[in-house]
Amino acid sequence: MLKSIKQLVKNRFTGGAFISLCVIAFIAIFSPLLTPYSPIDTKPEDRLLAPGHLHYFGTDELGRDIFSRILAGTRISVGIALFAILLAAFVGTFIGSFSGFIGRWIDQVIMRSTDVLLAFPTLVLALALSAALGPSIVNAALAIAIVKLPIYMRLARTQALSISQTLYVKSARTFGVKSGWIVRRHIVPNLLTPIVIQISLDIGDAILLIATLGFLGLGAQPPTPEWGAMISTGWNYLIDQWWYPTFTGAAIFITVMAFNIIGDGIRDLLDPKAGE
């Protein structure tokens, strides 16, 4: 573990991203202690102030400190993204490995349903799902989990198929070992590496999806300090109060980029064939 981190940091690219990620994690965990102002309470007399030493990134239309809201939003965006991806990975791996292991018509049905889910562009499906479920941040997270589900199902299935063809699993089967035990003992551990790689590549994308849903009015609802929703409101002040949406967007950009670079780094580390 420590050695892997060392290897990640050695590269200037991933090293920078690793430090940013540590800062982002720190902010996400300790944001209630770090915010100079309340991210929720309004203060109409301070509305739409320009950035200055009191409010680093200015204030919004209700007088809230944008810097504080961005810090508070870190926890929401990163937390929801992690939740959605882990949910998709957990459920997808479970269904996929059983599908591959059991085979027969169950496998056929499950695989055709992933085909159907993959027939929708990610964002469009997430959009339709959260519109159908009703706009809220939990529903947005569910929508993202569903959208990401088929990738994990397929990944797990492919691995499970090849592992269940190996000699040790075949012989375990002939000795009448229960399927559940084989899946837990042999298939899941072998799946970990590809799943971890996929998770690390997906988190950045999930953060982008949440922000996009929020921007389109489908994710978090006011007064939640969610980045996408903040930009959606800030859009109305784009020309005269440019700082309002701009700093918030920069926060998304930096966070997603840090996750993506680390994701690439983890992939190269665990699967040297894939990257370089």
């Binding site: 982008l208 930009i231 440019w242 949406p245 967007g249 950009f253 996750f259």
Partner: peptide, 26 residues
Amino acid sequence: IRFFAVGGVSVPLFWGGLVMILIFYA
């Protein structure tokens, strides 16, 4: 090129559009 590319897959589209509007329009 790699930096430029990883930026592209990380930038929120709406924010990219916003920055462009601020610069080239406003």
